[in-house]
């Protein structure tokens, strides 16, 4: 049997994936109990679980699709493990390409030599492990510092709230800006950097649909006191945005759908 997807690889995958699920369940249960101690309502806790699960479905399918990009060369199992723990497609592709090119191979062809496969697996693992060393060392110190600032005085606490909200806005704004006038550059399986997508009519229109749907539904939920419905406004707005992208691609002229800023390089 192919060494990339034999019983040993599936056993390793089961161990790693099982570990992730058990760790997640552990923190979920502990946080749930703490939430009850703090007097957070059961409904709020249940809504947090359901919304987060719904919210994660589409991105999870996208991540799943990237497993198959690496599968031609590495089989299904190693990319599955790597993209379930820490990894993301960009890093894994770069790591595999870089190591295979030094060993005289590429991701466009199936890896048939166990030593090359082992080199890729080691490279991906060593590459991604640093945060797992840094977080246990610095996490408590960073959170203690943040706590000290927040608890210093009421004005410091107010300012900390403003800064915390601003930091979240910063993250969101980065993705929004990229959707308005950015390009995505990805490494091909042969190791070349190419423009894989660019912002334009479709990304901006999807962004606007998603914003408008959220604002409309949120206003409706607030005015009509639709508490249960209000919990689903965000995922609904996201899926409507995605649906709108499908409809616009099907119904609008291709010249409009494919329109992009003239200064951006073409998709290769």
């Amino acid at each position: 049997m192919d060494f990339k997807s034999n019983w040993l690889m599936y056993l390793l995958a089961a161990g790693v994936i099982g570990f992730v699920v058990v760790e997640s369940l552990f923190f979920l249960v502990k946080a749930w109990k703490r939430g009850k101690e703090l007097g957070i309502s059961k409904q709020t806790l249940v809504n947090t679980v359901t919304n987060s699960a719904i919210y994660s479905v589409a991105p999870a399918i996208s991540i799943l699709a990237t497993v198959f990009v690496l599968a031609n060369a590495l089989g299904n199992v190693l990319p599955w493990i790597r993209l379930s723990v820490i990894g993301n497609l960009q890093y894994e592709t770069v790591a595999a390409t870089s190591i295979l090119s030094e060993l005289g191979g590429s991701l466009t062809e199936e890896v048939t030599d166990p030593a090359k496969f082992a080199a890729v697996a080691w490279g991906m693992t060593i590459g991604c492990c640093l945060p797992l060393i840094l977080v246990p060392i610095f996490c408590k110190k960073i959170h203690k510092k943040v706590g000290d600032v927040v608890n210093k005085s009421s004005s410091a606490s107010a300012l900390a709230d403003v800064v915390a909200a601003a930091a979240f806005i910063g993250i969101i704004a980065a993705f929004v800006s990229k959707s308005i006038n950015g390009i995505e550059v990805t490494k091909t399986l042969t190791g070349e950097n190419v423009v894989s997508s660019r912002a334009g009519f479709l990304s901006i229109a999807t962004l606007i649909v998603s914003i408008v749907v959220y604002l409309l539904l949120d206003t409706l939920a607030t005015k009509k006191h639709l508490v249960k419905f209000s919990n689903f406004v965000m995922p609904i707005a996201m899926f409507t945005g995605m649906g709108a992208a499908v409809l616009m691609t099907q119904l609008l002229p291709q010249s409009l759908v494919l329109w992009s800023w003239p200064w951006l390089p073409p998709v290769q």
Partner: peptide, 10 residues
């Protein structure tokens, strides 16, 4: 392809 504009727009 438009998952980020949809998600971060909301």
């Amino acid at each position: 392809q438009q998952i980020f504009p949809a998600m971060f727009g909301a």
